[in-house]
Simulated assay, not measured.
Amino acid sequence: MSGWVPVIAGGAVGGISFFSWGAVRKGENQVLIRSCIILTLVCCYLMWAIMYLAQLHPVIKPKRGDLRLEE
């Protein structure tokens, strides 16, 4: 796994957002539906990307608990 995975997934989310822009039927709530779909996709992507990158490069170094303390 690398840092390119969020970039590729972001491109996929961008493509799905672009597709959903044209897939929504015309009507009085067209702008509301488009906004909801795109905001949902962006928020889900951001949550996933932040969690993925936090696990890829942790801020705190993990410590092993099964080691004896040296005296």
Score class of each variant (00 low, 15 high):
1 M>S: 15
1 M>E: 11
1 M>C: 08
1 M>D: 13
2 S>C: 01
2 S>G: 12
2 S>Y: 07
3 G>A: 14
3 G>H: 14
4 W>Y: 13
4 W>Q: 11
4 W>F: 14
5 V>N: 13
5 V>R: 07
5 V>I: 12
5 V>L: 12
6 P>S: 03
7 V>T: 02
7 V>M: 06
9 A>H: 12
9 A>N: 10
9 A>M: 13
9 A>F: 09
9 A>E: 15
10 G>F: 12
10 G>Q: 06
10 G>E: 04
12 A>I: 12
12 A>Y: 10
12 A>M: 12
12 A>H: 02
14 G>H: 01
14 G>Q: 03
15 G>N: 07
15 G>Y: 11
15 G>H: 03
15 G>P: 02
16 I>K: 00
18 F>E: 03
18 F>M: 07
19 F>E: 06
20 S>N: 00
20 S>H: 00
20 S>W: 07
21 W>S: 03
21 W>L: 12
23 A>R: 01
23 A>Q: 03
24 V>D: 03
25 R>D: 10
25 R>T: 11
26 K>D: 15
28 E>R: 05
28 E>V: 06
29 N>D: 02
29 N>A: 09
29 N>S: 08
30 Q>F: 04
30 Q>Y: 00
30 Q>R: 04
30 Q>N: 08
31 V>N: 15
32 L>R: 13
33 I>L: 09
34 R>M: 07
34 R>V: 00
34 R>E: 07
35 S>F: 07
35 S>Y: 00
36 C>M: 11
39 L>R: 09
39 L>V: 10
40 T>W: 04
41 L>M: 11
41 L>G: 00
44 C>H: 01
44 C>W: 03
44 C>E: 04
45 Y>E: 04
45 Y>T: 05
46 L>I: 05
46 L>W: 00
46 L>Q: 04
47 M>T: 12
48 W>C: 01
48 W>Y: 11
48 W>R: 00
48 W>L: 02
49 A>S: 15
50 I>K: 11
50 I>S: 10
50 I>H: 06
50 I>D: 11
51 M>Y: 07
52 Y>P: 09
52 Y>G: 05
53 L>C: 12
53 L>P: 08
53 L>A: 14
54 A>K: 12
55 Q>F: 13
55 Q>D: 14
56 L>Y: 13
56 L>F: 15
57 H>C: 10
57 H>I: 12
58 P>E: 10
58 P>N: 12
59 V>A: 14
61 K>N: 11
62 P>L: 01
62 P>E: 07
62 P>Y: 09
62 P>A: 02
62 P>W: 11
63 K>Y: 05
63 K>R: 13
63 K>T: 09
64 R>F: 10
66 D>C: 02
66 D>N: 13
67 L>C: 09
68 R>T: 07
68 R>G: 05
69 L>A: 01
69 L>D: 08
70 E>C: 01
70 E>R: 05
